[in-house]
Design a protein around this nucleic acid. Structure first.
Lengths: 216, 216
DNA sequence: GACAAACTACCTACTAGATGGTAGGTTACA
DNA sequence: TGTAACCTACCATCTAGTAGGTAGTTTGTC
């Protein structure tokens, strides 16, 4: 808790950025040492092995995510608004490049080569996120605030997949806007209780700017 | 042409499997050498550098994908059926673990640490796939076979994101079925021309000129 | 047909630098 | 005095990549 733990936090923060950029095998202790401004061996003092470091990182990430979900629920009860806030969180992260990818999503793609302990944490995050989304969607459907076209679980999985896939596309296109292009209509569809009604509200599907796709 | 080129193909095939498992930094020339049964240095004979190898691999993957799309179009004209076949292709790959991930999707997640030449190929695949899906969706919407809730481009991006996210979830859960859980309802939604009509199978609304909802 | 040059596919042996990790010492501070 | 944080100096192993050699085949030329 003393501020000396700041070094440990710095190491974790740098590791997080490096993993977001290139995954488990995409960074080394030397990279972190350079960024933090200490020697390689000092990292081993805080995290004996790379597995320890990444496991700790993902475990903490999971805790923060679960805390974030719980806090959202405390502040907002409307299911649609919860989904909007969740998507909006990532949209902001991607837009300002502060953390343009969920580390668990990134690590999941490398699951076959991940140390087992790390893999377990990653899987746990997926289950946790899926569970929360399912509960939100189920509640929304029960109260008539959300329009589901399949089971809450299936819709939750679809929502999560869309968010992860949208992160990937934003990265591939080098264009943060694509995230909103994907998640926006998805939220709208869940919101519209009368999907046949073409004039459901002013703006309609908007996002008229599909000239994104940047270029390179 | 001669069978000696088989070694080169073997190298590419192994590299592909290894990349599918762990991405660009998740394998080494030594791994390939072991799998193919030749020495490390011999790989350099076929592919002078790792960048050459992976760029070739992704370029060939792109060609195959574009050829696959073109062939699909030759055999099938129904837009919904095209999307079903596309999703079905990946569903089969994931189910039998033959190639449970699109290498471009996997590499895109590591784009920031990828050699530039490889990154360009990966981005090109995203544009190509998005373009094809957009054209299929646009055609389906124009002919009244598909029900879009936003622009063809936005729907295409959403479809692609869902497919990629579903691959990720299948891997995270270690359960191939999740892919179908995500893509199934998505295809159904696109298929249902009258989403308000709970009993959509029973025509409900006249003018059902083309009810091809395919077959398989 | 003979023969040499050139080429292909592969090898052994090596390199420099990166990798995760260790041993043991120094400093600062409670 | 003990301990946490950090250091220098290592280590074995792995990394992509190179040098140079060998065996077998193809090709051009007389």
């Amino acid at each position: 808790m003393k501020n000396s733990s700041t070094t440990s936090d710095n190491i974790l923060a740098c590791a997080r950025n490096l993993i977001v950029a290139g995954g488990y095998n995409g960074f080394s202790y030397a990279d972190i040492a350079d960024m933090v401004g200490i020697r390689k061996a000092s990292i081993h003092h805080h995290f004996p092995s790379k597995v320890d470091l990444v496991r700790t990182l993902v475990a903490r990430y999971r805790e923060e995510a679960e805390l974030g979900m719980a806090n959202l629920e405390l502040q907002v009860s409307d299911p649609l608004e919860l989904l909007r806030l969740y998507a909006g969180y990532w949209e902001a992260c991607i837009a300002d490049a502060s953390a343009p990818f969920c580390i668990c999503a990134l690590l999941a793609s490398q699951l076959p080569v991940l140390p087992e302990e790390v893999g377990l944490e990653v899987r746990a995050h997926f289950r946790s996120l899926s569970g929360w989304l399912t509960s939100v969607l189920e509640r929304g459907a029960r109260h008539g605030q959300l329009q589901l076209t399949s089971t809450p679980l299936a819709e939750a999985e679809a929502f999560m997949a869309a968010v992860h896939g949208a992160m990937l596309s934003a990265r591939a296109y080098g264009d943060p806007k694509i995230f909103g292009v994907v998640t926006g209509p998805l939220l709208e569809r869940l919101a519209s209780r009368f999907p046949c009604d073409e004039s459901r509200d002013g703006d309609g599907c908007s996002h008229d700017d599909q000239d994104e796709r940047s270029s390179t």
